[in-house]
Design a protein around this nucleic acid. Structure first.
Lengths: 218, 218
DNA sequence: CCGACAATGTTGACGCTGTCAACAATCTTT
DNA sequence: AAAGATTGTTGACAGCGTCAACATTGTCGG
């Protein structure tokens, strides 16, 4: 509790994770290193290894954290949005895109091949991985089921497959946007990125069922 | 032409690119290094720098190559598939998935944030980047327009946005599959990955219009 | 209160990486 | 054949992830 810098940092683990997020956001995955991270936290270059067995494990932990945040964002949107399940679903799609835009490094970390590999190798040792609170897919599936129940999505489709289809398009759109593809194509055609996104979303909305107008802005 | 190993390799550039593909497929992006690549090609560790200014530039070249290959695969599918444009579009979706499965490293390279950044920095110096023959999006958009013309896709949607929507869902599905998400979820529900993919594709097909049965296998 | 033991942090080393500078061999052109 | 441009080699540098050995601090049984 003193102001003196003690030999023991006593909550280095958490501090490292927080600094890691900022470091990755600032310098990208390329410029992210354990040694810079240690320096940022004001400890020696091997101190992090008392809390994470490897860089891979630290990244996997960050990825888990990302899923928890994404799930939370989706749930918050779902509970905030009033009206039909269909509107909820569209709002959740927007929330997914927002999350991807605001935390691009989180997303690319959560869904990169390396990220998954890291998570798997860690999950085999720490069972809290892939627990319920990090299931970012669940909320989506629930809403899809609700859409089927209210008739705004084809009730004869298998809910899992339908949810995957919805997830795929939103995920794909988010990644293509993050990679700059949307901006590139939009520029070629003299549109803004937001206009293009809204237009694509209108197509999704049209596919989701025969219902009313398209909601919201990007 | 002699059997002797000459000082000058005379087509090192091409040899490096080919070895790079194999190296990446074997060891993943993580284990891919310029020095290993040089060793594979039987040259010293700095020889590649006579042909590529940096690792980034080599990767960007590979990425361009991937787009050329993907475009070729899509065009081949389009010209092979007979029948309605709608069937072509679905076949091209399958082709995209196949390409992603058979060359996962190519795909993650082509669409990873680092890949794009690398490409951009190279494109600003070498203008052949993003030329017509590497436009893997064009063939898709053409087919989408054909679908609109024949009435199997909503003619009132803006073709660009519609194409993006289609691309997004196929791209997202391909990436989620490559990252193991589909396998994971399928296993949880006691399905096979292929069954799940087919089911998702059926949903896409259903969205694409009111037409007949779903084609093909995965 | 003290001594043992576990937890946490530090120093120094290892091999690997991307890249640069200086030098050497070869090809091309005159 | 001489000159200059290409292409390949050697050696060095800083930065990386990680391990081993050691130092400091917190915790707990006596």
């Amino acid at each position: 509790m003193k102001g003196t810098k003690s030999y023991h940092h006593k909550d280095l683990r958490q501090a490292l994770l927080q600094h890691a997020v900022r470091l990755i956001q600032d310098e990208g995955m390329k410029g992210f290193s354990m040694r810079k991270l240690a320096a940022l936290a004001g400890v020696s270059h091997t101190a992090p290894y008392r809390h994470f067995a490897s860089k891979e494990e630290l990244v996997a932990t960050l990825m888990l954290d990302g899923h928890i945040r994404l799930r939370a964002a989706l749930l918050a949107t779902a509970s905030t949005t009033s009206g039909r399940a269909r509107d909820k679903l569209l709002a959740m799609g927007r929330a997914y895109l927002d999350f991807a835009r605001e935390q691009p490094e989180y997303i690319s970390l959560m869904f990169s091949g390396e990220g998954m590999a890291a998570a798997m190798s860690v999950a085999s040792r720490h069972s809290e991985f892939f627990a319920e609170d990090s299931d970012s897919f669940g909320p989506l599936e629930e809403t899809v089921r609700a859409c089927q129940a209210e008739g705004s999505l084809d009730p004869s489709s298998e809910p899992g497959a339908l949810s995957f289809a919805v997830w795929s398009q939103v995920h794909g759109l988010a990644l293509l946007r993050n990679e700059g593809m949307i901006r590139l194509m939009a520029a070629e055609r003299g549109h803004t990125e937001d206009d293009t996104l809204n237009a694509v979303f209108a197509v999704f909305s049209h596919w989701y069922g025969p219902a009313g107008a398209v909601g919201g802005e990007v």
